[in-house]
Design a protein around this nucleic acid. Sequence first.
RNA 1: GGCCCGUUCGUCUAAGGGUUAGGACACCACCCUUUCACGGUGGUGAUACGAGUUCGAAUCUCGUACGGGCUACCA
Length: 515
Amino acid sequence: MRVYLCSRMSKKVRVRFAPSPTGGLHLGGVRTVLYNYLFAKKYGGDFLVRIEDTDQSRYVKGAEEYIFDTLKWCGLEPDESVQHGGNYGPYRQSERKATYRQYAEQLIKDGHAYYAFDTPEDLEKMRQNFKTEQNTSPQYDNNIRIKMRNSLTLSADETEKLLAEGTKHVIRIKIPLNETVSFTDMIRGEVSFDTSVVDDKVLLKADGMPTYHLAVVVDDYLMKISHAFRGEEWLPSAPVHILLWKYLFGLENMPQWAHFPLILGPNGKLSKRDGAKYGFPVFAMNWTDPKTNELTEGFKEKGFLPEAFINLLALLGWNDGTEQEIFTKEELVEKFSMERVHSAGAKFDYEKAKWFNHEWIKKSGVGSLKSGVKTLLEQKGIVFTKDFLLDEVINIVKDRCTFLTDFVPQSLFFFRAPQTLDVDGVKPKWNEDKKNFFFAYIEKLEGNINWNVVSLENSFKELASEKSIKPGDLLFLFRMMLVGGKFGPPVFNIAELLGKTETIARINKAIILFG
RNA sequence: GGCCCGUUCGUCUAAGGGUUAGGACACCACCCUUUCACGGUGGUGAUACGAGUUCGAAUCUCGUACGGGCUACCA
């Protein structure tokens, strides 16, 4: 286990999550939020959300709202964001455009960046021309840049002229030759890169928008971020960011980094496709792609409790070293530590995810389940006149529910008599003796009986032995009458909750149907 | 191809040089339950491979293999 002390913990902890509004928030995204959130809350710091919408071509309408809806459902609301206010706005990168240009120009002035006038076609040609067996995808690096059209190869006059004419151009970082860039990752320890293999990344695009590389550094600085956490897919571009920090704001001001392991699907990095392919949700909530109108079911709609969702996500790559697996959000805040986050990727296991939800449903009280269950049942046309029955029903069936949606089949029959009875399935087990038994049982029920589980069961069994019928055969029939299927809580508990009138009515109705 | 990160039961993981390598999910068996479940008990099952360091290696080092990520004017 690695322990890297947070050397700048004296500084107020401020972390950020920076989603790009290009689609639904998937497991990996929510876990990144979660870890950021837990870390911030553990140290009494701020959790900030800003929107990376600098790629307008991929911007998806509604995605930004969707992201905040997800955070809300998960209970991971930021302290600062577009929607929550704060003193470091604007929180959308598209609204900060002017700021980035200023820093990019600064870099050029200091000799750490340059203008590049190459067109996309030029770049394509370059990739073709310099492609070799050893180097299948040539980079715009210190070897190539001297062969391209940029302010390093052009004379100052030419450059001036091109700029004055408004020629389309980008600003690229000038990666130094033969330097080692290293930094300490809170999860992985020291990670280092040789600059000779890092390319001259575009910092400012031709449309004036920054790329992620420039924006993340500038925003983290201006928003006073103390700890920068993101997914492992960003590790290869870390040297670019370290260099930018060095050139622009000083390494002593740089946040502490941590790169989270990837959440993997059955085949590598979890993708949206995996959900459809393997039959489990990948997004926190339902997401409808506005372009294709394709709906991807979310964990919420599948019937996951938000408490279970963040619990299972937290444990995908982290544990507290004990055998505890069920954690409330408060416990996670208290026990979370970046040093215990794994460095290896974790494969998502839907079976285990279901187990977490099941545990949470069992653990939850009626109070926290009620409104969700009520909504689901109301969608099935149930009208509630007396809530106390619902309370009792939730208590009695929750142990058999894995998903919140399981409450529907498990409790619908309490509120509505079974619509169809499996008459053909019952017929072989039905005869005059049994019919007489149930007529007699109705008589007993209508008599002076205490309406509780014990009396109902005792009188049922007494009657059965009087009539010399095996209770097992009758119990099955009784269940079919009340429930309409081979499932549900003990049948006398059901009868007790159903009440006298309804129980007798269902028996009568079934007798007629069975003939 | 290059660079980076990684590798303990099928999956999530514990074990910080000395453990019969522990737990959870899943699976199997039994018990409980006149339904379906829950629950209980038990079982199958792992240190990728090869060297080195050491009295002693899952643990430290190196190599190999395998997996993943990145290699865009995407994030």
